[in-house]
C-alpha cells in the first residue's frame, strides 16, 4: 500500500518532489509535527488557569475588605511590572525547590538541610520532573501571569454590567455573594470577550517559551531538525537549514493568531445576540 503510494507520487510529481515529500515525512519530522500537542495543551491548560486566576484577581480587586483589594492590586501590578519570561522560569523552579525542601526535611534531617551549601541538601531529596510535570508547571505559571491580565479585563467588564440588573437582584433578596457570582459574573462575559481574546493571543505567543522548561516542543524540534546534518560516512546531508524551520514556525503562529481572531469574532457575534452593546466600552 505504502510502496505503491510512493511509486505513484514519484510518477505523478517526479523524483525530486517525491524525495522532498519523503524527507519531510520521515520519523523525526513526524515527531516535530506531533510536538504541536505540547503547544496546544499548554495554550488550553494555561487559558483555563488564567480565567480562574483572573476571576479570583478581579474578585479581590473589588473586595470590600481593604487588604484583599491590596492583594488584588499587588498581584496585577507586579505581574505587569516584571517580564513574563522571568515568572515562567521562576514558578516551576520555585515549586520544585519548595517540594524538594519538604522531601529533604523528611529524608535528610533538619540539621543536614540547615548545614547544606548545595541544592538539594542530600541526593535523596532530588525530585526529577517528567515532561508531563513540566507541562503542568508551564500551564500553571502561564496561567498566573496571564491571569493578572485577565483579572484587569474581567474587573473592567464587571464594571460594565448594568447596575440596574444587580440592584434588581438584591431587591429580590439575593445575598451579596449570590449577586456577585450569579449576576455580575454571569453577565460580564460578553463585555470581557474582546479583552480575553487579546489575552488568549498573548498566551498563544507565550507558549513558545516551553522549550525553556525542558519540553521538546515545536521550537526545540525546529532547532534540532534544522541544524547542519553531517554524518562521517555519508558526508554533509544538508547545511544549516534552521531558518527554513523557524520560518515555518513564524507562519504557524501567525495562522494560529488568525484562526483565534476569527473564532473570537464569531463568538462575539453569538454572545451579543439580543444585547444592546452600543456605547459600551468593550476595550477594557
Amino acid at each position: 500500500m505504502l510502496e505503491s503510494l510512493i511509486t505513484w507520487v514519484n510518477a505523478w510529481l517526479g523524483e525530486d518532489v517525491g524525495a522532498k515529500l519523503a524527507y519531510i515525512t520521515n520519523g523525526k519530522h513526524l515527531l516535530w509535527y506531533a510536538s504541536v500537542r505540547f503547544t496546544l495543551i499548554a495554550a488550553f491548560g494555561s487559558a483555563a488557569f488564567a480565567v480562574f486566576f483572573g476571576l479570583i484577581g478581579a474578585a479581590l480587586k473589588q473586595a470590600t475588605f481593604t487588604p484583599f483589594r491590596w492583594i488584588g492590586n499587588f498581584y496585577t501590578t507586579i505581574v505587569r511590572g516584571v517580564p513574563d519570561l522571568l515568572f515562567i522560569l521562576f514558578f516551576p523552579l520555585a515549586f520544585e525547590q519548595t517540594v524538594e525542601y519538604f522531601i529533604a526535611r523528611v529524608k535528610c534531617g533538619a540539621d543536614v538541610v540547615a548545614a547544606a551549601t548545595t541544592w538539594p541538601p542530600c541526593p535523596e531529596a532530588q525530585w526529577l520532573l517528567s515532561t508531563g510535570d513540566y507541562l503542568f508547571m508551564a500551564c500553571l505559571s502561564l496561567g498566573i501571569v496571564y491571569g493578572a491580565f485577565a483579572a484587569n479585563v474581567i474587573h473592567g467588564a464587571m464594571q460594565a454590567v448594568s447596575k440596574g440588573q444587580l440592584e434588581a437582584a438584591s431587591a429580590y433578596g439575593f445575598s451579596r455573594r449570590q449577586v456577585f457570582w450569579q449576576f455580575k459574573v454571569r453577565q460580564m462575559w460578553v463585555y470581557a470577550l474582546p479583552g480575553l481574546s487579546n489575552v488568549w493571543i498573548l498566551l498563544i505567543k507565550a507558549t513558545s517559551f516551553l522549550s525553556l522548561l525542558q519540553i521538546a516542543d515545536i521550537v526545540t524540534w525546529a532547532g534540532r531538525l534544522g541544524g547542519a546534518n553531517y554524518f562521517p560516512r555519508m558526508g554533509l546531508i544538508h547545511p544549516d537549514w534552521r531558518w527554513k524551520y523557524y520560518l515555518v514556525l513564524f507562519i504557524f503562529f501567525i495562522l494560529l493568531t488568525m484562526i483565534s481572531e476569527r473564532f473570537f469574532e464569531v463568538l462575539q457575534t453569538r454572545a451579543s445576540r439580543g444585547m444592546s452593546l452600543a456605547g459600551v466600552k468593550s476595550d477594557v
Binding site: 513558545s208 521550537v219 544549516d240 531558518w243 501567525i254
Partner: peptide, 17 residues
C-alpha cells in the same frame, strides 16, 4: 501575530545563512 522568541530565532538563523 508571532512570538518575539521565534522572530529572534528566525532572524538569527537567516543572518547565519
Amino acid at each position: 501575530g508571532s512570538p518575539l522568541f521565534i522572530q529572534f530565532f528566525m532572524f538569527y538563523s537567516i543572518m547565519l545563512a
